Amino acid sequence: MRLRLPDIATDPDAFEAFYRRHVDGISSFLARRVEDPHTVADLVAEVFVAVLDSAHTYRPGRGSEIAWLYGVARNTLSAERRRAFKETRLAGRVGGRRPLDADDLAELEERIDAEATARRAFQAMSGLPDGDRAMLELVVIDQLTIAEAAEALGIRQGAARARLHRARRTLRNVPGIAPFVIGGTR
């Protein structure tokens, strides 16, 4: 019998298999966007909690499991950024992070270092319109297909292709970044 994504909410073995299949990809996704290892660790946990809470919303006919998961991760990261902005603006920076052991910290620092080039690419892309930048991030940096990225963003594939083309055209002459963003589509 084929496992359905909603089963992960009630079957611990199914959740563990799902988690193991995707934790590295989600950790990298977040490490490309966040420099603090504690925040990355917290966000990874939040993504998988959100997956458990919303597994029943996954519809295979609307897209792949990976596209749905990256949509959950993007929403979790957006919620964290809004929360952090409010916290910084209203109350300053507050502790409350879970402690990481030395191995966790070293692994996350390695991942953050490995994603330094991607963070530089994000800086170069910061001037793009939000939709174009999001499409470029998902296809070029996160290696989703155009169809998966369109699903994660909730747009049609034609619109996704147009956004990707516009973003690449805008960045094609940026020194050091062009080969990174111009790569082929999947």
Rank of each mutant, 00 (worst) to 15 (best):
M1R: 12
L5H: 02
P6Q: 07
D7F: 04
T10Q: 08
D11R: 13
D11N: 14
F15R: 04
R21L: 07
H22D: 10
G25V: 04
G25A: 14
F29A: 03
A31N: 10
R33Y: 12
P37A: 05
A41R: 14
A41E: 15
D42R: 14
V44R: 15
V49T: 13
A50S: 14
L52S: 07
S54C: 09
H56N: 05
Y58H: 15
G61M: 11
W68C: 02
W68L: 04
G71V: 06
G71Q: 08
G71C: 06
V72F: 11
R74W: 08
R74A: 11
T76Y: 06
T76F: 06
A79T: 09
A79W: 08
R81A: 04
R82H: 11
K86T: 13
K86C: 06
E87C: 03
E87I: 04
T88M: 09
R89S: 09
R93I: 15
V94L: 08
R97F: 15
R97W: 14
R97L: 15
L100G: 06
D101S: 08
D101W: 11
A102C: 02
A102G: 02
A106K: 05
L108Y: 15
E109I: 06
E110K: 08
R111W: 00
D113I: 00
A114K: 09
A116W: 13
Q123S: 02
M125Q: 04
M125H: 03
M125I: 04
G127T: 02
G131M: 03
D132P: 00
A134I: 00
A134Y: 00
A134E: 13
A134P: 00
A134T: 01
E137Q: 14
D142Y: 02
D142N: 05
Q143D: 13
L144Y: 03
L144F: 03
L144W: 02
I146C: 12
I146W: 00
A147K: 14
E148L: 07
A149F: 12
A150Q: 08
A150W: 09
I155Y: 01
A159G: 13
A160F: 06
R163P: 02
R163Q: 07
R166W: 03
R169N: 05
L171K: 01
L171H: 01
P175K: 06
G176M: 07
G176R: 06
F180M: 10
V181R: 01
G183T: 08
